[in-house]
């Protein structure tokens, strides 16, 4: 059942990226180009919709002793503010701003976005792999 839930959640997530057009980097860059004179606020509406649903889901999760299909609910959010968090977010923001792709939309575009998406994903996985090794080493 956990695998079925994971598949369903992945499908719904991907559908959400298509419906909202967040799968399209040009749409995302239109949001990030705040001072370009033709600002595209679509991404803000996407965030409002997603955060609103999750703002309801978190209190429900906290009221349950365990997830429906076993395991544990995530622990309380860490409050550690350090240079890794801020530096990592800044590096991520730089890469996001250069192309307009973040991990979700990049992966969702794998079969429908052409070779540019493949190049981006290969580079992203390499970056993740290298950092995983540095972190664990």
């Amino acid at each position: 059942m956990r695998n079925l839930v994971a598949l369903l959640a992945g499908l719904i997530f991907g559908l959400g990226l298509v419906v909202s057009d967040m799968i399209n980097p040009a749409r995302v860059l239109g949001f990030l180009d705040l001072f370009g004179g033709k600002w595209d606020p679509t991404l803000a509406f996407v965030m409002i919709g997603a955060v609103a649903v999750m703002a309801i889901a978190w209190p429900i999760a906290r009221s349950k002793p365990a997830p429906v299909f076993g395991g544990d609910m995530p622990g309380p959010a860490s409050s550690l503010i350090d240079s890794r968090l801020v530096g990592g977010a800044a590096i991520f923001g730089l890469g996001w701003g250069l192309v307009g792709l973040c991990p979700g939309p990049a992966l969702a575009g794998l079969l429908v976005g052409g070779t540019s998406v493949w190049v981006f994903i290969a580079a992203m996985l390499a970056g993740m792999g290298v950092l995983n090794m540095v972190k664990s080493g």
Binding site: G10, V19, S20, D21, T42, A50, V53, A57
Partner: peptide, 21 residues
């Protein structure tokens, strides 16, 4: 469509949280 897509993304995340933790 942005709002609708966002709600779908939120539902996906809520499903993963409540069902699988």
């Amino acid at each position: 469509f942005g709002l609708t897509g966002g709600i779908l993304i939120g539902l996906s995340a809520a499903l993963l949280l409540l069902a699988n933790g």
